[in-house]
């Protein structure tokens, strides 16, 4: 359903993505692993049009989207929801208004339905009764979950997670990872998770892709990856086993 073909992205003189090609099937949980600064987040941002590639194609449901205008991208963004690395909540809005923001703009739903959807989304991330609070009043882990709820409320077919567990303590990390798995299964969404956490990739991913220096160095199911001979993958695995 989503396919990247030979994607290239440069910043100034630095080429971050050097021809990346892969496809994702419906309902799959795909992990993209790699060290910091290898262009993992850039890959996601290209998919929803926050950045535009300098070469290659992006196919979503049989449409080549990388040349879309900003307005055409709104259609893509209704299908593809993104959870940012930081909570990226709007500080001047309450939690309710934060979650309702997309429902009002993208879906243009009536208010009573919005209320229903917000309640449902907060339920899905196991947070209830915080609707009237402001983001700074919540803990970082809770902000992360509200941010997840904001994206889930739009009922996207594809969920993108940009390093969802960076900066979280181990307990919250586990909770967030379980949440990702739970949401993907329950809502039957396709998920792409960008991360450098091999441990959780092995436990919840259907397929893992390893990115290094802007290129795919290895890919496969968790079982296949465990037997990989690529040095970077071995380094990642060594972390987990230790």
């Amino acid at each position: 359903m989503i396919e990247f073909k030979n994607l290239v992205k440069t910043f100034g003189t630095r080429t971050v993505l050097k021809g990346v090609s892969f496809a994702i099937a419906q309902g799959e949980i795909l992990f993209i692993l790699g060290t910091s600064g290898t262009g993992k987040s850039v890959l996601l941002k290209n998919l929803v049009g926050l950045m535009r590639p300098d070469g290659g194609e992006i196919w979503i449901d049989g449409e080549e989207t990388s040349r879309f205008s900003e307005d055409e991208y709104l259609r893509v963004r209704r299908k593809v929801g993104m959870v940012f690395q930081q909570p990226a909540l709007f500080d001047s809005f309450t939690v309710f208004d934060n979650i309702a923001f997309g429902l009002r703009r993208l879906e243009k739903l009536p208010e009573d339905q919005i209320r229903e959807r917000v309640r449902e989304a907060l339920g899905a991330v196991h947070l209830a009764g915080v609707e009237e609070k402001y983001p700074p009043q919540l803990s970082y882990g809770m902000q992360k979950r509200v941010s997840l709820a904001r994206t889930v409320a739009l009922r996207p077919q594809v969920l993108l997670f940009d390093e969802p567990t960076t900066g979280l303590d181990p307990v919250t990390t586990t909770a967030v990872n379980q949440l990702i798995q739970e949401l993907s299964r329950k809502l039957k969404t396709t998920s792409i998770v960008v991360s450098h956490d091999m441990n959780c990739a092995l436990s919840i991913a259907d397929r893992i892709l390893v990115l290094d220096q802007g290129q795919i160095v290895d890919q496969g199911t968790p079982g296949e990856l465990k037997k990989s001979q690529v040095p970077l993958v071995r380094d990642f695995l060594a972390e987990v086993l230790a």
Binding site: L50, L74, R77, R78, M82, A88, F101, G102, L154
Partner: peptide, 8 residues
């Protein structure tokens, strides 16, 4: 980025 992703 979030604003753009949420359709505004």
């Amino acid at each position: 980025d979030a604003i753009r992703c949420l359709g505004a």
